[in-house]
Amino acid sequence: MMAKYIIQRIIYMLITLFIIASATFVLMQFLPGSPFNELGGKMTAEQEEILLEEYGLNDPVPVQYARYISNMVQGDLGVSFQYDNRSVTSIILDRLGPSAHLGAQALVIGSILGIILGMVAAIRHNTWVDYSSNVIAVIGISIPSFVFAGLLQYYFAVQWRIFPPSFWEGPIYTVLPTVALMIFPMAICARFMRTEMLEVLGSDYIELARAKGVSNNTIMFKHALRNALIPVITVLGPMTVSLMTGTLVIEQIFAVPGIGEQFVRSISVNDYPVIMGTTMLFSVLFVVVILVVDLLYGLIDPRIRLTGGKD
């Protein structure tokens, strides 16, 4: 049952990725300009012809497509227009470190803070703690991360000079970008946790635990917390998306040498292979996270563990 479900999910995942890959290929065909225009247009027709031949761009489109897909499966995402024909894969790998570091830091700190905030709000339901946690959550969900990043940078770096305004040269440099990036995961976690916790606290089994004479603290931590935490895993999906969109803008604002900053730069100079490569990377990341969330959910929730499907 479970195995069948996993296999089915993986097949869908591969179909999705295949469609995205094909779409990027089609797009490359339609996009204006030859890849060698960027070199300054100083080439003669013969030189260009030699290059086209060398890169296989004179082959029929189906052949190119097959080669594109097979290269991609092998991790070869093509060659950058911008950087002297460096391979896209190596550009991405070079820049993966700071992005992963920043993303992980924001994800972990943001979700822990969010869970605590949401839990406290639910326990102190309808008190000022609850209201202020709600206000923080609404602000965190509403204010775009680049606006938030801009304000953080202006006040904490330019005005008060507490943190460095940009670059990536040590832990202190990660503070502002992390805060800017984690605000959305924190808010969404807090909100979700609060709702779940309130629902759990209003449930019959919590009342039964009370009727057993169990103390409030035990109810919170032994009965309520676990039940409320399980569904919070589902926000990992939207959180990943927000981290991906977030890195694009926040790395640019704080001059972090990550994938997002490279991506935005590539967009500005039409470096299509890098754009497509990064797009594929994001797609894979997203699809994998969605799958992992689903499987994790089944693993943690005993109701799903043995039945192999929700409900």
């Binding site: 995942m13 999705t16 990725l17 991906m244 969109t245 994001f282 997203f286 969605i290």
Partner: peptide
């Protein structure tokens, strides 16, 4: 299948 594609992309 469509929902597996991140809308950012």
């Amino acid at each position: 299948i469509l929902s597996g594609i991140p809308n950012l992309v």
